[in-house]
Amino acid sequence: MSVVVPAPSHGHPRDDRPSHDDLAALAAEHGLPKLGSRPALTDYVRQLWGRRFFCFGLARARFRSQNEQDRLGIAWIVLRPLINAAVYGFIFGLLLPKSSRQDNFVASLVVGVFIFQFFAACLTDGAKSITGNSGLIKSLHFPRAVLPFATVIEQVLALVPMLVVMLVVALATGEPVRLKWLELVPALALMTLFCTGIAMIAARLTIHIRDITQLIPFLTRLVFYLSGIFYKSPGADAKGGQSVLATVLEFNPVHVYISLVRGAVIVGEAAPAHTWRLGIGFGVVFFLVGFVYFWRAEERYGRE
């Protein structure tokens, strides 16, 4: 099958190949933009908005396929952290004195483990969101921030059934149904902002240093033990000064968000205004820093 093409005006460009400046001028004359240059931040945001359906579609498809192969399917999303909480509760319930535990230990532990799970998944999967999708990156052109965003959205979808179980556990351990549950919405929205920032930073760092994925399990373990999940903050000591652990807990973003969620669900753990301010600050700052940091390497993704 032969196709006839209208003869273009070029003759033998090999002989009269235009110079550097000619080509750049020709491109300028016809308004052809330069490829591969990083779009301005505002254009980038607009492109990202244009792919919002793709972002959500990707998150939903991944979420569904993730658990399809197991017999219990999506139930594992809840079972995994529940079993996790049970193991920690068993071990630390035996190991630690009762005085170091929160009043409603079971509900506090479940909230802590579930909310931590959300953070850990965003960090771990976020770090892999560029390197693990090289097929997609090498075949289609779209703003790469779609990938860490989709990772976080996927985790938000997984968080919904976890929240339901969390509230059931709270009711079962004697917590009342109350209006304060509505605080879950701003608390988790802020945490999602924070986690998106973390996912974007981790995604870009992994591009520069692959070995980071090896260190992430240790990092998450460290954050886990420093987030007051199975013990309560020691607070002020006898002299009125704060212990190092209490200070770390106070400014650990993950502990901040866990405290906000506990404040909404558990009576007697109400979060002070100070904690809310920290939650807003960490959410906004990490999101903005993470977004700009990720965007600044946009042209590098896909080089590996």
């Binding site: 490829l35 090498k138 896909g302």
Partner: peptide, 19 residues
């Protein structure tokens, strides 16, 4: 040309996003 592998030197100018 598809913008999937960045150029190290030189430039590519293109009308729309090549697929």
């Amino acid at each position: 040309i598809a913008g999937l592998t960045p150029a190290d030197q030189g430039a590519i100018y293109a009308d729309s996003d090549p697929t």
